[in-house]
Amino acid sequence: GYDLQSYKVLHAGALKSATINCSQPKVTPSSGGVTVPLHNRHGPCSPVPSTKAPTLEEMLRRDQLRAAYITRKYSGVKGGAGDVEQSDVTVPTTLGTSLGTLEYLITVGIGSPAMTQTMLIDTGSDVSWVQCKPCSQCHTQADSLFDPSSSSTYSAFPCSSSACAQLRRSHQGNGCSSRSQCQYIVKYGDGSSGTGTYSSDKLVLGSSTVKNFQFGCSQSESGNLLKDQTDGLMGLGGGAQSLATQTAGTFGKAFSYCLPPTTGSPGFLTLGAATSGFVKTPMLRSSQVPAYYGVRLQAIRVGGKQLSIPTSVFSAGSIMDSGTIITRLPATAYSALSSAFKAGMKQYPPAQPMGIFDTCFDFSGQSSVSIPTVVLVFSGGVAVNLASDGIILGSCLAFAANSDDSS
């Protein structure tokens, strides 16, 4: 029932990094924008290659924590909890950190003279931070610790500053130090946290410089937070403290990124309006959870055929998240997708489920594999034809279901 236009062909090894090419893609942001390279943190192009990359199974277990955390945040809003950051969240810490799913890095310079810092990007949080000297309880990192005392442009926010007041309003203030310096706290889904002094300094992004960039100077971390070689995290959320919000006046209220398909290829992050060629769907926002950017999925096509899914199933909307690995669908939508995909994969024997994946196949002995196309259709009829990397992971359909349509 499918025509050839409705299939993609994967060749053996296509799901692995067959070729390493770390050169920077040529990207032309509109005038006034800036682009920096972006790499997978585990691969050969990473500025801080992992000494021990997690297995796919472990990454999927961490991913489930992050997805559950995002869902709980909205559940808190729905229940009128208001301060969702303070909602009672209990997650098994032995499974790792929800932040551990973050996979993409950029390299920036902070301070005068600029000190190189390699930071994870995260569209799901706002406060950026780097580990600072002295750091009493921090993880090891590949680059030198950022040393505020060596930067001529560094300053700590006093507790009376408007930036500190804004931080308190977004429930990320953490009191005052004995020197009346504003303290921040970031908390993540597994109970991990980081604290330090809310500060500002010069930020170098590619060929551009941002003066008075606000960030957290991390002096203490607890839990399983970011046990790797990275130096910190760059928040790209929609809240007041994020890099995107801070630079809106300089580069414009827009940013874009391209996440590379393999660990051995490069991507990019652009601040400022990108060039043309996009299909666009309305962005959904929540004043209660300002960090997240939402979209409304309205249909799914498999092998060129639209699945029979009531649009009401998608009414809650979907979060665009750079940190969650696997797309989560309402249960009814996932069931329809899985059934249609299996129907288009009849030539391959089924395989055992793996973690959150339950639609898996046995590709052993295959030199190439044909898979049905998968198109996500967003509000306004915007159709996004997924790359093969976005359809199959390992040997499984790379989607997962929420526990029910209402979650």
């Binding site: 893609p25 990207v27 991913d63 997805a67 995002i70 869902t71 996979e103 993409y104 569209t123 929609g238 995107a244 809106a248 209220k253 827009a254 940013f255 874009s256 990124y257 391209c258 996440l259 590379p260 490069p266 990019f268 309006a273 990108a274 060629g277 996009f278 299909v279 666009k280 769907t281 309305p282 962005m283 950017y293 999925l297 809650a316 909307g317 979907s318 979060i319 665009m320 998240d321 750079s322 940190g323 969650t324 690995i325 696997i326 797309t327 989560r328 669908l329 309402p330 939508a333 996500l376 996004v384 034809n385 997924l386 790359a387 990397d389 976005g390 992971l393 989607f399 929420n402 979650s407």
Partner: peptide, 30 residues
């Protein structure tokens, strides 16, 4: 609530046009 994860975003350029209130997608960007 759904979540569009990073596996599905790979190779696309994903534009967060906050000022314009839109999310954009461009295929084959990297």
């Amino acid at each position: 609530l759904g979540i569009i994860g990073n596996v599905q975003q790979r190779t696309l350029e994903v534009l967060y046009d906050v000022g314009g209130g839109a999310v954009g997608f461009k295929a084959g960007a990297c």
